[in-house]
Simulated scan of single mutants.
Amino acid sequence: MATLDDVVAWLRDLAGTMKEHAAELTELDSAIGDADHGTNMARGTAAVAALLDESYDDAAALLKKAGMTLVSTVGGASGPLYGTFFLRMAGPLAGKEQIEAADLGAALRAGVEGIQQRGKAEAGDKTMYDAWAPALEAYDEAVSGGQDVGGSLRAAAEAAAEGRDGTEPLVARKGRASYLGDRSAGHLDPGAASTTLLLESAARTLG
């Protein structure tokens, strides 16, 4: 079970995580993108962290504000995608003071559906969805097996990491990387890498 305080801790940890890994994400992005993913994610999550001392009625209200902040402060494709993720996550959590594992699963799925609708990506396109799809599946399996929020998120993070690593041999079919054609193979997708960091942060704090 997670609460508003746990979500606050997650978003604070996420800002620190993105700052810590900014250079690594930007290096990945320099190979197949605009070389700004790490900088953008660090700036956006820092802007979210600046909101955390305000008061919120529930986790949904905070996630909605976080989503709007990411959309307005993060450049490139990642701002609208991650912003949409948090905005959509808020829906299933509205009015919930205590977030059970199944509640969070519904929120994660709503968020990822938002990413898919905005980005039009499918599995194998070498995007963040290649980390999100197996993560959702692993999360749902863990919940079905009786795992709590923390255990389910750890399973999701492990599956996301495998999905991230699986993007290396793929040829990109979406986004800036797709312009490179076959030359996009041999590199990890930066969005899949930041997705994995987000889920690892959630597993540390929401569990």
Rank of each mutant, 00 (worst) to 15 (best):
A9M: 07
W10R: 08
L11W: 02
L11G: 01
R12D: 14
R12T: 12
D13C: 12
D13M: 06
D13Y: 04
G16D: 02
T17L: 10
T17W: 08
T17M: 08
M18W: 03
M18C: 14
K19I: 00
K19P: 00
K19W: 05
K19V: 05
E20N: 13
E20Q: 10
H21G: 07
H21A: 09
A22Y: 00
A23R: 13
E24K: 11
E24W: 13
L25T: 09
L25N: 04
L25R: 06
T26K: 07
T26E: 10
E27P: 00
E27C: 00
E27F: 05
E27W: 04
L28F: 08
D29P: 14
S30E: 12
S30P: 04
S30F: 02
I32L: 12
I32P: 09
D34R: 08
D34N: 10
A35T: 11
A35D: 13
D36F: 07
D36P: 02
H37V: 03
N40W: 05
M41G: 06
A42C: 01
R43E: 02
R43H: 13
G44M: 08
T45Q: 11
A46Q: 13
A46T: 14
A46S: 15
A47S: 08
V48G: 02
V48D: 02
A50R: 12
A50I: 10
L51D: 11
L51F: 15
L51M: 14
L51V: 12
L52Y: 04
E54G: 15
E54M: 13
S55M: 01
S55R: 12
Y56F: 15
D57W: 01
D57I: 10
D58N: 15
A59G: 12
A59L: 04
A59H: 05
